[in-house]
Design a protein around this nucleic acid. Structure first.
Lengths: 184, 184
DNA sequence: ATGTAATTGGAATGAACACTCAAAGTTGAG
DNA sequence: CTCAACTTTGAGTGTTCATTCCAATTACAT
């Protein structure tokens, strides 16, 4: 009943190859052929385990984002500053992965709702995290205002990250912190 | 010595076809074949007038952005509110064109500086416009703080627009105005 | 051991697409 | 009217890429 060990190992090799390629060369480098070569596997094996290339890419990007989460278990101990730091770290440490994330979100056709809804859910979870952290640190605040603030701060962070991706000399960290100061 | 009329007309037809396709279906719809069919022209004519497809696309996107400029002549009469309104209008009236703009900025390889530098220059001009408008409306402010504010506000607007592109029910206009209120 | 189900190899498919070229046609200045 | 410069044609090139197919092989439960 359980899965074959061989399949599990192959899947791990494919994911690792995809991660390595995305981190080194972005979406352009992660062609199916490159992934299979890097993993030492043929195309048939890939499609035995994944429905599409996109599936593997999305999984890797999601895992990369989770890897910098300051509170992966949802204990509710993260401050706004922790969250901003984690955000900045993701972009500074894995710039190509971040670019893949944004491209994947934009490239999904407006019609096909699957991928787009996933991104939206992820965004909304982040907004809630920020809002919770804001309430924790600053209890004398109206709840609707907090949500607005969280949405504005995340918007600012996304935009500043985009700005930084155009010009890596942009001081993302400094601006991100300043945005947090004024919007929470 | 002056250009042949035929070439000028063909160029106009190609630009118009490109604009129409980008507005209707985004980058995916604007293939070379589609552009040429729409313009009633063959591929060879296209390449007689343009060095690459990208050249035509960039021209159309730039013209679309200029078309919503509240102060195209640089008279210095635009307020922060005018600029925010123009920004929101561009996204709401030409969502696909806006998406093309962002994609084009992100898709350029980090190595090839040409296209990326163009986007950066455009961004910096926008920051200056915002900073000037801020100084005009609120003269008792330190200049370095103004620049920071302008950069933060534009970052927020870009990020909110991205947010909106994931979910068109997001009230871009309301959030954009709120961001302007808090960051200027 | 044996049969079934999972896995693998790797060639083949087929679609998409930007771009080129040489020959034929057109324009317009003098 | 003439001729060089310009423009158009449209088939053709070359490339990249994800995905499919299925026979051969291997893993695993009984």
């Amino acid at each position: 009943m359980s899965r074959y060990q061989a399949g599990i190992r192959t899947e791990a090799k494919i994911i690792e190859a995809t991660r390595s390629l995305l981190a080194r060369g972005g979406l352009e480098a992660a062609t199916l052929k490159a992934i299979c070569d890097e993993a030492g596997v043929k195309a048939g094996s890939f499609y035995n385990l994944f429905d599409s290339k996109e599936e593997a890419v999305i999984r890797v990007v999601r895992e990369s984002i989770d890897a910098v989460d300051p509170d992966p278990d949802g204990a509710g101990t993260d401050s706004v500053d922790d969250l901003v730091t984690a955000f900045v770290r993701f972009f500074e440490e894995q710039p190509l992965m971040a670019r893949v994330y944004v491209l994947a979100a934009l490239n999904t056709e407006p019609s096909e709702n699957g991928a787009r809804k996933r991104f939206l859910r992820h965004h909304q979870r982040r907004v809630e995290r920020f809002a919770d952290a804001m309430i924790r640190s600053n209890s004398g605040e109206r709840p609707d205002e907090t949500e607005m603030n969280a949405e504005l701060l995340l918007g600012a962070l996304d935009g500043l990250a985009f700005r930084w991706s155009l010009d890596p000399t942009f001081e993302l960290s400094r601006f991100a912190r300043e945005a947090a100061k004024r919007l929470s």
